[in-house]
């Protein structure tokens, strides 16, 4: 297997230039797809036979909830890489992605509450799914807090890598909470192995908004990582050259 891409990713300089190329593209393409998917879902997709229009919040709730978990999975992998290989970019990734994931988890909780009130009859219930997502949000808050509280950057990176890695145990709990225990939250509509339990005119806009949100978040993460790389490599010659040639 060819590992050059992996070693290239370990070089902040190479990453900075790669992200300068792709960050903006991801953000704008993602934003366009996201707006298309959300407008389509909220305005034009058919309403649900039981829930009527309140079902449409699925076009926001599901993409952010899935992305909140994906961000944490990425941070967990980066934490592992940071601890074992001590690659420079891994802690940069964790530090940059944590606020993005935290915002997604928060929107997932809020949109879920807004959806819960008209359908279930309550904003919040302490069932296993809702509680485990709240734990995910608190883990994000913990990562952000530790990163900001510790002045020693090397030590902070290590502590945050450990929290990211250990917190990954929460992800299967979120995923299977609706199957292991009795919950008010319904099981997943989309499974990898089966056809989705909704017709195409309903899931197609959802696909657009989900892919759009992923691209958008990836672009934002790249931008944030670029900033962090500049901050950490400020003494490197290539950064001086970059700033003199292109500005920031």
């Amino acid at each position: 297997m060819n590992w050059t891409w992996f070693h290239k990713l370990g070089s902040p300089k190479w990453f900075y230039q790669w992200a300068a190329n792709w960050g903006g593209r991801c953000v704008y393409l993602g934003l366009a797809l996201l707006l298309l998917g959300v407008a389509w879902g909220l305005g034009f997709a058919p309403a649900d036979y039981q829930q009527g229009n309140s079902f449409r919040i699925i076009y926001i709730h599901v993409p952010v909830a899935v992305l909140a978990q994906s961000c944490y999975l990425g941070m967990g992998i980066a934490g592992f890489v940071a601890l074992v290989w001590q690659m420079k970019l891994a802690p940069v990734f964790i530090k940059s992605v944590a606020p993005v994931g935290a915002v997604m988890a928060l929107i997932a909780l809020l949109s879920g509450a807004i959806w819960g009130k008209p359908t279930w009859g309550t904003w919040w219930v302490w069932d296993a799914r809702l509680t485990s997502v709240l734990v995910l949000f608190l883990l994000y808050m913990g990562v952000i807090a530790i990163q900001n509280a510790l002045d020693d950057q090397v030590f902070a990176d290590k502590a945050v890598a450990v929290v990211s890695l250990v917190g990954v145990i929460n992800l299967p709990i979120i995923k299977y909470s609706v199957e292991w225990w009795n919950t008010l939250h319904q099981p997943a509509t989309f499974k990898l192995t089966e056809k989705p339990s909704m017709p195409m005119e309903m899931w197609l806009p959802l696909l657009f908004s989900a892919v759009g949100l992923y691209l958008f978040a990836a672009g934002i993460a790249m931008w944030r990582m670029q900033n962090e790389v500049l901050k950490r490599e400020r003494k490197a010659n290539w950064v001086k050259k970059e700033v003199l040639e292109h500005g920031v």
């Binding site: 058919p46 309550t122 319904q186």
Partner: peptide, 17 residues
């Protein structure tokens, strides 16, 4: 003292039902 409704993961347009 409180009744909450559950719903399943199936969504369908009213015409289909």
């Amino acid at each position: 003292s409180e009744v909450l409704a559950k719903h399943d993961e199936e969504y369908m347009p009213p015409e289909v039902t």
